[in-house]
Design a binder for these strands. Sequence first.
DNA 1: ATAGACATACCAACCGGTCGGCATTGACTT
DNA 2: AAGTCAATGCCGACCGGTTGGTATGTCTAT
Lengths: 195, 195
Amino acid sequence: MARTKDPDPEVRRRILDVSLDLFATKGFAATGVQEIVTKAGVTKGALYHYFKSKDEILFEIYGRVFGHELESLQRIVAEGHDPVRTLRTIIVDLVSHTAAITKESAVFARGGHADSPHWQAMQEQWRRYQEGFRQVIRDGQEAGAFSSKASPEVASWSVFGFTNSMHTWYRPEGRKSPADIGEELADLILTGLQS
Amino acid sequence: MARTKDPDPEVRRRILDVSLDLFATKGFAATGVQEIVTKAGVTKGALYHYFKSKDEILFEIYGRVFGHELESLQRIVAEGHDPVRTLRTIIVDLVSHTAAITKESAVFARGGHADSPHWQAMQEQWRRYQEGFRQVIRDGQEAGAFSSKASPEVASWSVFGFTNSMHTWYRPEGRKSPADIGEELADLILTGLQS
DNA sequence: ATAGACATACCAACCGGTCGGCATTGACTT
DNA sequence: AAGTCAATGCCGACCGGTTGGTATGTCTAT
């Protein structure tokens, strides 16, 4: 029974969970390593056994934010539906995904670490997602589905701003499901775009 | 030339300006007092002569964010125009104001200091502004100007999310003026609300 | 003389990070 | 089966540097 090496022990998980909580509520810089280990019920030795720096914990959290959203968008576009249905699906997908990672989203929203490669890499992914989103709107305008007077930039920032601020007000125990909220947002934006 | 006692000496201003810059780009916690005074070309003695703590600098910046926005909203409502025009004016006003204080807005967006009374006071003002905004939408729905199917919450968070994220993309040297951008956002949201 | 406007030197506390050590465990040898 | 060994997982005392903040002094204008 070759017991395989545990790839993700509970101690490591606890450190990550507690860090996520603290980074989301207090911010990365304002959170001390000592605070993390105390709340997680472990020691500094344990933390530095699993992570080579405090930064690395942050980077692992970053990785969960935009990991697969660009692929998701491209997959939806590839399905080849009409612009209205395509954009609606994208918006609902984005809102649902953001609702599922509110804490990570809060850490991301606080920003920081502008000079680290990890942060820049994530910003680049995020930028590409934005560009893909706007391209869907532009395609829809050329196809005549959306008004040419509307601004793809303003429309996209309404949606991104909405999702970026979700962590400040969205609560999972609320009446509306993430999908419901996404549909309502899609209703609003799509109506506006079609004018 | 009786040089009157300067109520806001240049040294104090420089400290405030530099702090605003650093807090907006690096975050409050990640910015050291030493860093502020070095960049401002003054000494710590000067800083602690004008401010009794690093926090107080932050609080003074906070004060500039929502100082008069609630009054502005109430003044616009009091003018008694139709819901569509009222909401449009409010949105343009909010976007313009946010564009004028992008750095302060960035500091606010990073959040933090959840337990300080200053932060909570500002959150309360912000909450009241949101409520006033949503009430305009609800009034418009009762008056039949807006569709009753639309969600005031989703519509308002599209606008607030938009303004909250402006500091990440708005540049004063861009082609569109803040008022232009505000009009475009108003077009989008108002069309959506009227369905 | 008095008060404001700083400069300078300094401090305890805390920061992220390190390091030698130790208990446990599975693999390999005999 | 017993003994050896190396690796893993973790502990906690410790480190140099930095932190926000202060005490005291000096200069200047009134």
